[in-house]
């Protein structure tokens, strides 16, 4: 860990002022990812701006019937919040699939969006990595890439985004509220995270001098027919090989609307509106689900060790959509897949 400076921000404007004066500074809230990376010298901020005491820790109903979630609401509080549990159970389920309870007690909502990849080369400063050291090369493309991306990859990077919560937020059409020197702006969730392209060092479209203040959810939908299924190498406390968030609105046996987003397969939470469109108006059956899965995975590309993810994702999508259609969402405590 390098010898950074430490300051505590008094309010959001103060936080923005601090970051604007020092582009190599970083905000710290829960610290669960940043401190980890700093100990490995992957993150080397000159200054930490402590935002953990800013008043961004409430969950409030909005006038349009949605929710505004303060950026500092701990993941566990969000998961167990009565309004989230009752109106956005997909989000609750996805949050509880990630990390451990101790980490969820620390990790903030905003910080969850800014988690960095678990790619081993990103973490190991002795190996090339374009995300950590732009231009040094991608070690994963021809290396140990079992956990890596199958969608939206580039020659420069095949890393995945590790969050579970974000997969649900993508499916639920969340928006990200940020504040910068020029004031506030809102970023659609789909536009928040980036594909690697030739700038894999940039995970998001958040500008360096902006702070996330809140995540907003539109009025609740998909309260009955949803599921979050996480497939991983052990039954808890492991990052996803593939995770699937599925949500349906059914009219009789027909799908009126659908959401489908995947984790563990791309540089960002992967939502495919084309696949969703293919579900709409169709009967909620295996043929429909498989067709949507095939559509979503049409451009999937496997590497030496992760090609299995394509078929796993295909089966997982169909299964999760089945769970959603049946109204039998996956329980994160009971490990039998429903």
């Amino acid at each position: 860990m390098i010898n950074f400076q430490y300051v505590r921000a008094n309010d959001v404007a103060d936080a923005v002022r601090h970051i604007a004066t020092d582009p190599t500074a970083k905000f710290i809230a829960g610290g669960t990812n940043l401190i980890d990376l700093m100990k490995d010298d992957v993150e080397r901020p000159s200054r930490l701006i402590d935002i953990s005491r800013l008043p961004l820790n409430t969950v409030e109903e909005t006038t349009d019937g949605g929710l505004r979630i303060g950026a500092l609401v701990p993941n566990s509080d969000l998961a167990y919040h009565p309004l989230v549990q009752s109106r956005y159970p997909l989000l609750t389920s996805a949050i509880l699939a990630g990390a451990s309870q101790q980490l969820r007690n620390m990790a903030s909502t905003g910080g969850n969006l800014l988690q960095r990849t678990r790619c081993a080369y990103f973490y190991d400063t002795a190996t090339p990595c374009n995300k950590r050291t732009p231009g040094s090369g991608c070690s994963a493309i021809n290396g140990l890439n079992r956990i890596h991306a199958i969608l939206g990859t580039s020659e420069a990077c095949i890393a995945t985004h590790p969050s579970d919560m974000c997969v649900a937020l993508a499916a639920l059409d969340a928006t990200v509220h940020v504040t910068g020197p020029d004031g506030e702006r809102t970023i659609m969730f789909a536009d928040f995270h980036r594909l690697p392209g030739d700038t894999p060092q940039r995970d998001t479209n958040l500008r360096p001098n902006e702070i996330i203040t809140a995540i907003a959810l539109p009025a609740p939908r998909f309260v009955t027919n949803y599921s979050y299924l996480k497939i991983r190498d052990r039954l808890s406390y492991a990052f996803a090989l593939v995770s699937i968030a599925a949500a349906l609105e059914l009219e009789g046996g027909t799908i009126a609307d659908a959401r489908l987003a995947l984790g563990g397969v791309a540089h960002k939470p992967w939502r495919d509106t084309g696949a969703e469109a293919a579900l709409r108006g169709q009967p909620a059956n295996q043929a429909t689900f498989t067709r949507a899965a095939d559509l979503l995975l049409r451009d999937a590309k496997g590497f030496e060790h992760n090609a299995f993810k394509i078929d796993l994702a295909r089966r997982g999508i169909a299964r999760t959509l089945t769970q959603a259609a049946n109204g039998t969402p996956q329980s994160q405590a009971d490990k039998k897949v429903r």
């Binding site: 081993a120 021809n142 290396g143 190498d233 052990r234 808890s236 406390y237 492991a238």
Partner: peptide, 20 residues
């Protein structure tokens, strides 16, 4: 290629947890 252990941690070197 590097002769380096790439999961030298207890997040990606998986050992059973309570749920297993």
């Amino acid at each position: 290629r590097f002769g380096r252990i790439m999961n030298a941690n207890v997040a990606e070197y998986h050992m059973p947890v309570n749920a297993d």
